[in-house]
């Protein structure tokens, strides 16, 4: 099983998914990330899915779980780089990822986190 690396930039954790995710890697990432948020006192989490070709219900649920979990640990999550075909497929699948913030790319994701944190210092 491959593990997804978690990078730290200031008080933001960045995860860029570059592998074809199997379910075990997804579960490991959830756990690794919860630990990392606490260990680094992170206030923001960015999940980059630019390289992700499909998001099925399992991966979709991971994104929602990470967002909810981070919120409980006082961090905000932004999913960035979703491909248009992935967005279309997710909606048709029935997953709208209601509780998950998104931005078009990493730069906008960082700006969104700055804005959110500026609003609630």
């Amino acid at each position: 099983m491959e593990r997804v690396p978690i990078l730290k930039l200031g008080d933001i954790l960045i995860i860029s998914i570059q592998i074809d995710l199997e379910d075990q890697s997804v579960l490991a990432l959830q756990e690794d990330l919860a630990e990392a948020v606490v260990a680094h006192s992170a206030r923001g989490v960015i999940i980059d899915i630019t390289a992700v070709e499909i998001v099925d219900s399992f991966i979709g649920r991971m994104l929602a779980t990470i967002a909810a979990m981070s919120r409980m640990l006082d961090a905000q999550t932004v999913v960035v780089g979703m491909r248009p075909a992935v967005a279309i497929t997710l909606v048709e699948l029935g997953l709208s990822l209601g509780g998950v913030r998104t931005a078009l790319n990493l730069e906008k994701g960082v700006a969104l986190l700055d804005h959110v944190r500026g609003a609630t210092p």
């Binding site: 379910d23 070709e53 499909i54 998001v55 099925d56 219900s57 399992f58 491909r83 248009p84 075909a85 992935v86 279309i88 497929t89 048709e92 699948l93």
Partner: peptide, 17 residues
Amino acid sequence: SLVDQTKVVTAASELAR
């Protein structure tokens, strides 16, 4: 098409799981 590829691969992922 790219969208249809994405849809059918996603369906395959669900059904294989």
